[in-house]
Design a protein around this nucleic acid. Structure first.
Length: 570
RNA sequence: CGGAAUGUAGCGCAGCUUGGUAGCGCGCUCGCCUUGGGAGCGAGAGGUCCAGAGUUCGAAUCUCUGCAUUCCGACCA
């Protein structure tokens, strides 16, 4: 491609609404433009990156034996009513009506559609297992689109769905997809981790893993063991309970009341009573399916609402407001405690290790000290209800502790089981001649999100540093002075020769100053640059690797050989 | 959905307090000059000042309402 007429609008100044590095570079390097929150137009350069990522994903999926289809994005509401997800997904879905006032959905994911397809077209165990996928646009009406393309309302996703006659078969395909995803993200040059996660509204009965690209701007926190390969999303991460830390209750003195006017928060307690936060017993009030329940935690811990919801078996869970707290407990928030509390109480197990704690007295402006779990309040319902914290013991091995990273979720794989086939009545005849629900798995990759992830992990103060595998062009050829016939002739010669060999080359044939060309070249970040300058007459050019900045003067022939070596395999 | 900020030329911003001819830098067009790190000189083009209503002789500026974008949180995956 010649740069002169290309729609490649690089920006010198940073658009003020872009805060994170990848978003700024996306705009500055002329890859895409935003027209409304969470909606982007890919420009030529950005589209090439998207296509290259898609290509790698397709190659690896095809290699795994999966078959590509393309489903309708517009879907009738009935499908979603049948599985109950019209309500479960709720406002996250883009909904619309046609001229007959019938409801439709712009698909946020395609389990309903593909399961229905299988129901209609496959009716024998002899056709199983199979795995079908598509690369398609998805719509989600996000409450808050942000971070550029990281959380968009319209985005490109690869989604795959596998169908099986047995759980063994599902497990095999799940493992294969795990391997396939690992190959894909490795080829993209990403630093990533597969982690255990929550299945969310996709649901499912079996295993599920998220593939996380490590990056500070990631929206998720992941807990990783220092010793073994345990890694989990914080929403899911367990901490091994150190039972040895439980103190004997007999030794503690009886609890007594303290006057603590206007002392409501843990921080205030820690300061005014001169105690450690880990000896404070805090009590939060939640509404689980509308019923009040008190959650008791150590002062330095945070409740994990997913764990709590599962522990309670609740369908909905929300933190009670100050008014509701006072209504159900009779005490203003800040002074609620487990001793003598009237509403049901659940306790995080680490509270059992607090030997003589400080807790709310269920009376305005008073706390108790020397409170002991089991002696002073009931401990019938105890569980792991808190977020793991740095330094917690690994739940998986004997030696490690947990450390935290931020991650961008770029893939998620699920063992679904029969959730969708059951509700949609998607069955096949098994070997015994009986109707059986398909056993399913599903596997997603956020293709457009990967662009953000790649940029986030591959940039410097000058711009993007594309890995060869996804670079929009592999080589940037820059004649410094386009009016110099010698320079242009040499540059064109290299450009044409590389193109004939199938190398993606961008030729900067703009009549711009050298400075402008170099700045743009660094910003766009193609892996290799060949500068044709003053020594063009001698057949000498400069060969530069963007990543290392390493530059050397070589003959045109040497430059060609170096490039062919670097692009080999891509 | 709660909190905060911002909206003026393609991009980045000033002007608003104290109402009176809409400005700067970059980019863009033309000419000259220049071509190894966002050059220089000269001449130009480009604006419903987010929208609507109000106050006023007069509103980018004051008031109200709405919309949009961004950030924090909640939420989602």
């Amino acid at each position: 491609m010649r740069q002169n007429k290309m729609l490649l609008p690089t920006l010198r100044e940073v658009p003020k609404d872009a805060e994170i590095v990848s978003h700024r570079l996306l705009l500055r390097a002329g890859l895409a433009r935003m027209f409304a929150a969470g909606m982007y137009t890919y420009l030529p350069l950005g589209l090439r990156v998207l296509r290259k990522i898609e290509h790698i994903v397709r190659e690896e999926m095809d290699k795994s034996g999966a078959q590509e289809i393309l489903g309708s994005i517009l879907q009738p509401a009935e499908l979603w009513h049948t599985t109950g997800r019209w309500d479960d997904y709720g406002p996250e879905m883009m909904k619309m009506k046609d001229r007959h006032d019938r409801d439709f959905v712009l698909g946020p994911t395609h389990e309903e559609l593909v399961t229905t397809l299988a129901k209609q077209e496959v009716n024998s165990y002899k056709r199983l297992p199979f795995n079908i996928y598509q690369v398609a646009t998805k719509f989600r009406d996000e409450r808050r689109p942000r971070f550029g393309m990281l959380r968009a309302r319209e985005f490109t996703m690869k989604d795959a769905y596998s169908f099986h006659a047995s759980y063994e078969s599902l497990g095999e395909t799940y493992d294969l997809m795990h391997k396939t995803y690992t190959s894909i993200f490795t080829r993209l040059g990403l630093n990533f981790r597969p982690v255990q996660a929550d299945a969310g509204t996709i649901g499912g009965s079996g295993r599920n893993h998220e593939f996380m690209v490590l990056a500070d701007i990631g929206e998720d926190t992941i807990a990783v063991c220092t010793h073994c390969d345990y890694a989990a999303n914080l929403e899911k991460a367990e901490a091994r309970y150190a039972a040895a830390g439980v103190a004997p209750t007999e030794d503690a003195p009886a609890y007594e009341k303290l006057h603590t006017p206007e002392i409501k928060t843990i921080d205030q307690l820690v300061e005014s009573l001169n105690v450690e936060a880990n000896t404070v017993i805090k009590t939060l009030v939640y509404l689980a399916d509308g019923e009040a329940v008190a959650v008791v935690l150590r002062g330095d811990h945070e409740v994990n609402e997913l764990k709590l919801q599962k522990f309670l078996g609740a369908r909905t869970l929300e933190l009670a407001s100050h008014a509701e707290i006072e209504r159900v407990t009779g005490v203003p928030s800040g002074f609620v405690g487990p001793v003598g509390l009237k509403i049901p109480v659940v306790i995080d197990r680490d509270v059992l290790g607090v030997s003589a704690g400080v807790a709310g007295a269920n009376e305005r402006d008073y706390h108790f000290q020397n409170v002991v779990a089991g002696r002073d309040f009931q401990t019938e319902r105890v569980g792991d209800l808190r977020n793991a914290v740095v330094g917690d013991l690994c739940p998986h091995c004997e030696e490690g502790t947990l450390e935290f990273y931020r991650g961008i979720e770029v893939g998620h794989i699920f063992e679904l089981g029969t959730k969708y086939s059951d509700s949609l009545g998607a069955t096949f005849l098994n070997q015994d001649g009986k109707a059986q629900s398909f056993i399913m798995g599903c596997y997603g990759i956020g293709i457009s999100r990967l662009i953000t992830a790649v940029i986030e992990q591959n940039n410097d103060e000058k711009g993007i540093i594309w890995p060869m595998a996804v670079a929009p062009y592999q080589v940037h050829v820059i004649p410094v002075k386009v009016k110099d016939e010698e320079q242009m002739r040499l540059a064109e010669q290299l450009y044409n020769r590389l193109r004939e060999q199938g190398v993606d080359v961008l030729l900067d044939d703009r009549d711009e100053s050298a400075g402008v060309k170099f700045k743009d070249s660094d910003l766009i970040g193609l892996p290799v640059r060949v500068t044709v300058g003053k020594k063009a007459g001698e057949g000498i050019v400069e060969f530069t690797v963007r990543k290392t900045g390493e530059a050397k003067e070589v003959s045109l022939e040497q430059a060609y050989e170096e490039i062919m070596g670097l692009v080999a395999g891509h």
